[in-house]
Design a protein around this nucleic acid. Structure first.
Lengths: 216, 216
DNA sequence: TTCAGCAAGGGGAAATATACCCTTTTTTGT
DNA sequence: ACAAAAAAGGGTATATTTCCCCTTGCTGAA
């Protein structure tokens, strides 16, 4: 007669092999039930909107998913269901994305190479105390607040220009493509070189790829 | 009294959460036992060399791992234990790596978003019939043999030059870095532009990143 | 053995493209 | 109405791209 007191979990992950396996692992802990699984943020949000469930104890949210990814899902949750507790799961330790998930309300961020023991701790901790941050994550948070003053923000036109700069077009061609004078383009270029502390178009391309402005 | 006839599997994957969960899933199929789990190719090979096991029915090998990755492990197996059957598991469908895993002896290649049902089929199929290829993989094999004639091969010097070209150095600087005349560098550049069908240094950078000659 | 052929390394020169600096006009927000 | 951006222009110095030619050394076939 103890089954009614199990915590209710939801898994959102496109790797079916993983999510279905993880369900078994979580159930083996004995204290949790996986009540639903979804393969991307879209179908998960659809479910939330249709059913408006109020008895969910924890969401395990994958970061890299097709259709609607973890970050977009997290942003939606922040606006629409801030009551739901989320632990983000991911294979990558990219600082940018970790910070964004946390600032959008994730209560924890675990890498998929975490041991099951720590995983169990994290689930318990978030359900009971409300959050769980590994050293990796807290380190990044500290690093972030220290460097936050020198943040770089790019305007929409600049982004468009950068994308074109990552092709074999000349600046002249880019100018006509964007319906601007080559001199304006030159202005964009110069201000970006300045902002991003680079000296050549090659540097711009490398920056764009590193910061996922363009994809290769 | 049926436990002795279960097939013996080994999982090699650095994502502990995944491998431990997957073990539960596989056991739930009823016909298989996961006799060992390893978190990278190195410790797996160490185990093989020490124990020389002969009763392994199947290896589930992750492609992206630290220390020694799936491809290197596969190459070792091809040379040292070609009797072992391997299904490669990965999140990415990069043609290059799939082809290499297959040509190095993997009997199957599954993406981690495969459904557990197909996964079960694949395991059975490889254990019984010796191989299992999804449409994705066979499509790539066909595509490969068709395009194999127009393969591009780069010389060592060219690779070095490309790596330098993916920095903010000028060609002159690259020349002095490589202890060659700027004119020789210019020759490399021109022949590469020709071979790779590109027209600018930007194109070279994009090519290099796409083909993993440099990393960002 | 000799010689054609080819690849690697280097050269001249001209046409474009990039990068930098500084000024002027146009638009915009308040 | 006015200051701040955004857009555009002038001028100049390098860097890059393109084309065509030269040497040297090696290799394979006659």
């Amino acid at each position: 007669m103890k089954t009614n007191f199990k915590r209710k979990l939801i898994i959102v992950d496109d790797h079916l092999l993983f999510s279905q396996s993880l369900e078994l692992l979580i159930k083996s802990f004995g204290e949790y039930d996986v009540i639903e699984r979804f393969e991307n943020g879209k179908v998960f949000i659809d479910y939330l909107e249709e059913n408006n469930p109020t008895d969910i104890d924890l969401i395990l949210l994958d970061v890299n998913m097709p259709v609607l990814d973890g970050l977009s899902t997290m942003k939606w949750l922040k606006d629409n269901r801030p009551d739901l507790k989320v632990i983000a799961l991911s294979v990558n330790d990219d600082e940018e994305i970790i910070i964004k998930m946390i600032t959008n309300g994730a209560k924890g961020y675990l890498l998929k190479d975490t041991s099951p023991e720590i995983f169990k701790d994290a689930i318990e901790c978030v359900v009971e105390k409300g959050f769980y941050f590994t050293e990796l994550v807290s380190g990044m948070l500290i690093n972030k607040v220290n460097n936050d003053n020198k943040k770089i923000s790019l305007k929409e036109k600049e982004i468009v220009f950068i994308k074109h700069a990552c092709t074999e077009m000349t600046y002249k061609e880019i100018a006509s493509e964007m319906c601007l004078s080559p001199k304006t383009i030159d202005g964009y270029r110069e201000s970006l070189f300045d902002k991003l502390e680079i000296k050549t178009r090659i540097g711009l391309v490398l920056y764009a790829i590193k910061h996922k402005i363009v994809f290769v």
